[in-house]
């Protein structure tokens, strides 16, 4: 895959996550009864990073859950390679809570649809919100993020690659071109 351009570096990502943390506090009037739920795989380190910022701003530890949406996908019977399931981890009662779903890229919205269904199987939160680092457009479902790091207009030929230190050994957001084959 060929890199077309680098749209965010380490500093830019850090600033965005910090701003998002402030927005979360502002819009929810604090952090009471709030849980961050990262969607595997890059939503998980992103949730951890936001939690660190929330801690340094408000001095409150927000619990983090992990969501594996594979078993909720709507395209299982059409994809060529079966994904590995790694499981979800929600060590808290989400009934009547305020859940913020966290993912790196918002694209068609299908992952988020699956994630909402997956969350609802754990209980009935009062509210579910969505936080993404990149919104690249091309929605196929009526879904909108509450917190966005950066809006990036893209063509469907392009791929947005988000790298976090924890998962990829570097911090960057790149636009790469799909291999022609």
């Amino acid at each position: 895959m060929k890199t077309k351009s680098i749209i965010m570096d380490e500093t830019a990502i850090e600033r965005s996550l910090k701003r998002i943390a402030h927005e979360i506090i502002e819009q929810n009037r604090g952090l009471e009864n709030l849980y961050l739920v990262g969607i595997r795989s890059r939503g998980v380190p992103m949730a951890e990073r936001i939690a660190e910022h929330l801690k340094s701003i408000e001095n409150i530890e927000v619990p983090i859950g992990i969501l594996d949406i594979t078993l909720y996908r709507d395209d299982l019977s059409t994809i060529a390679h079966q994904p590995v399931i790694k499981g979800s981890k929600m060590d808290f009662d989400i009934n009547k809570s305020n859940v913020i779903l966290i993912d790196d890229v918002l694209y068609t919205g299908r992952t988020v649809r699956a994630a909402i269904d997956a969350v609802l199987d754990f209980g009935r939160p009062n509210k579910i919100q969505l936080c993404v680092l990149i919104d690249r457009g091309h929605r196929e479902l009526p879904i909108k993020a509450n917190y966005v790091g950066k809006n990036v207009p893209t063509s469907t030929e392009e791929i947005i690659k988000v790298c976090f230190e924890q998962t990829d050994g570097e911090e960057s957001v790149k636009i790469v071109l799909r291999d022609e084959d």
Binding site: L71, Y72, K89, D121, F122
Partner: peptide, 12 residues
Amino acid sequence: EINERDYKKLPT
């Protein structure tokens, strides 16, 4: 883990 939930059902 699914079998240990209150709601033991998947749409898969």
